Simulated scan of single mutants.
Amino acid sequence: MRILVVEDDLQLGPWLRNALATAFGSCDMVATLDEGRAALAVRNFELVVIDRGLPDGDGLALLPDLRQQRPSPATVVLTALDDPIDIARALDDGADDYVAKPFEPIEFVARARAVLRRLFLDRGAAVSIGNMSFDIVNRVVCIDQKPIVIPRRELAILETMVRRTGRVVLRETLEAATYDFDDEIQSNAIEAHVSRLRRRLREANCKVAIRPVRGLGYLLSGE
């Protein structure tokens, strides 16, 4: 799952990025409207968290861009303004939730999870392949109904392939899903993660195959 935080606060922004990455997967952070639009132009996100008071304008100006995304991401607006008129405007413009500062960390993550749960309700939050099930919102993988622990980046790779079961997933797509904008990526990093993931699934007796496609990427299917 890919998340974008648009926040210029040098303390709150990194905290949000780390908290959301821990809860849901990879998370990118930018500080302005222009940077937000640039990020949306090159990547698809499942959740976008937007601060209203950005250096180059009101964060609500991003909502029309988000509505044009296919599929559209869930959106949470952050603000120090708690006037009912401001809240109504944000929700009418397409925001899924509106959180007033200050807020408790545990509450914010729970509200983000609730927004994502609603987003995936129609798309199918849980995917089953062979004897493996993947609950995308809660980030839980089960083999024969027993949960297994998978590290964050391997989990991001597995999620990306699960969403495209039976189709070739390009190496570049896996890199975008696994690493943030400012991460340095080693030349063989994806291959190493996939190798560890395949071994982990095999040891859990998972009836799912991850096959390399020379020069392109990988294909996941039920055995």
Rank of each mutant, 00 (worst) to 15 (best):
N131E: 02
L119E: 13
A38T: 06
C142L: 14
L119R: 15
A95F: 12
D183Q: 09
T173W: 06
A23K: 12
T75M: 13
D180I: 07
L66I: 10
E184F: 13
P73H: 06
V194D: 01
I129D: 07
V48T: 03
Q69T: 11
L116Y: 02
S133C: 14
L40H: 07
V109K: 05
A95E: 08
G13L: 03
F181I: 06
L12I: 14
A204I: 12
R202K: 15
S187D: 11
I136W: 05
P71Q: 04
P102Q: 09
T75Y: 02
L4W: 11
T22M: 12
V30S: 01
A95L: 06
V76P: 00
Y218C: 02
N44T: 12
A61L: 09
G36Y: 03
Y218G: 00
V49H: 01
V168R: 05
A80C: 10
I136T: 12
R52K: 06
R118I: 04
D86C: 11
P105S: 13
L20P: 00
R2S: 07
A114K: 10
A177Q: 08
I87R: 15
V208F: 04
I210T: 05
S133I: 09
R123C: 11
G25A: 10
G59V: 07
R37H: 08
L91F: 10
Y98L: 07
V168Y: 03
E175S: 10
I150M: 07
R2P: 12
L47H: 00
P84Y: 01
P14R: 05
P102I: 07
L219N: 03
L62N: 06
E172G: 13
L20Q: 01
I143K: 03
V140G: 06
K207P: 03
V213L: 04
P147L: 03
C142G: 07
L220A: 07
A177G: 11
M132G: 00
Y218K: 00
R123G: 13
R118P: 02
E191P: 01
D183W: 08
E154N: 07
I150C: 05
D58K: 10
R2Q: 13
R139F: 11
L121N: 12
L219K: 03
F120K: 13
I87P: 06
A126I: 15
L119D: 08
L40S: 10
A21T: 05
L54Q: 04
T32D: 08
G36S: 09
R52Q: 04
L60S: 09
K146C: 11
A189V: 06
G94L: 12
V169K: 01
D93A: 15
E35L: 10
E191V: 08
I129E: 14
T75A: 14
V213T: 08
I185F: 00
Q68P: 01
G59W: 03
A38P: 00
D183I: 06
Q145I: 07
V162H: 08
A204S: 15
T32L: 09
C142R: 15
R17C: 05
Q11L: 14
L116D: 00
A74D: 03
I148T: 04
L63R: 01
I210H: 06
H193S: 09
D28E: 03
